[in-house]
Amino acid sequence: MVEHAELPSPDDPQAALAAVVALRRLANQLERAAVDHALRDGWTWAQIGQALGVSAQAAHKKLAHKKDLS
């Protein structure tokens, strides 16, 4: 069962939407850092895509640095 007691109240849209922006930003930063580590550890884009719940192509398109694309 999902525990809702810890969820913040959405009745303050200003604060709740700002939190959504900040969480999205943090998630993107964490994603890039984790993928960098995974690549250094020898993960393939197929494995990274699987772990992120997207295709290998989608993961590569979003997260590969310019130097990896060449």
Binding site: P8, A15, A16, A18, A19, V21, A22, L23, R25, L26
Partner: peptide, 10 residues
């Protein structure tokens, strides 16, 4: 951004 995250306990 930090204050916004604190709102959700991060």
């Amino acid at each position: 951004h930090r204050q916004a995250l604190q709102y959700v306990g991060v």
